[in-house]
Design a protein around this nucleic acid. Structure first.
Lengths: 142, 142
DNA sequence: CGGCATCCGAGTAGATACTG
DNA sequence: CAGTATCTACTCGGATGCCG
């Protein structure tokens, strides 16, 4: 758990400045990261993507079994979103019992890697979070 | 936009395997990344953290002005959550017009860096997403 | 098998008014 | 100034049933 130098902080601030102009106005209203994160970082999408990273192709009911607790509706919604945004492909085989397979696109794999980075970071720091929560030990609405 | 080799994909799958055991059962039900992302990756929290990365300390109404469109209630909620989980500190100065200052913790800065990484990735790929959306050009509920 | 349509309940966001 | 209280509105998730 390395500490962060003032220098690094300044670097980040500089990057932010570059990214969002002078950041004052409501330019931040459209924020690409917000856009993307909001769409692919909900709890179900993350699991779906992680699973597809492990099992290269998965069918609807497979996913449903694995992604424990998800409903048909939500699974179908998420898959559609993820497909729309290019994270996954959907291949339909018009056989008699129809078969549909989902798989990550290159883009999806790329996202998965970022997700893995985050996962590692989270794993490293999760005790910090847990500890912090317990320290405040208030009623955690979440 | 470098492509991803089969090797890299395998590496990711291996990491996943390590992370989640054999991944079959419902062990995935508790997923640290999911836990953290869900709490700190909503649209408001992201903005708050980005702003605090740029302005080292901010007061409530400053934040409210900057984080365009957020309501008192939600801002207060988010700040409380972020504080509970250790992303930010809250310092109160019991002066006559009371003053409260928010700032990132070391942990918060660390998260911000990850967020920046993601931002860069998103920026790099955002055209891909937009293009993909338009290609499907269906009614985008989101 | 792989969904979509429908309905319902719970939680969340937003606006406004008010307080220490 | 920095929130809390309250109320409403709306979205979202879950369950069920149906269809190609």
């Amino acid at each position: 758990m390395e500490t962060i130098t003032e220098n690094q902080k300044l670097k980040v601030a500089k990057k932010l400045k570059k990214m969002f102009g002078h950041m004052d106005r409501r330019q931040m209203e459209y924020c690409p990261i917000r856009d993307v994160m909001a769409l692919a970082s909900d709890k179900w999408s993350i699991l779906i993507i992680l699973y597809l990273g492990y099992y290269p192709v998965m069918r609807f009911n497979y996913l449903k079994k694995r992604v424990y607790g998800i409903s048909n509706k939500v699974l179908s919604e998420r898959l559609k979103h993820l497909e729309t945004d290019g994270y996954i492909t959907r291949t339909m085989y018009p056989e008699v019992p129809i078969r549909v397979e989902y798989a990550l696109t290159e883009f999806g794999h790329s996202y998965l890697q970022k997700l893995m980075d985050l996962t590692e970071w989270v794993t490293e720091y999760s005790e910090v979070i847990i500890a912090s929560r317990q320290a405040k030990s208030g009623v955690q609405t979440n």
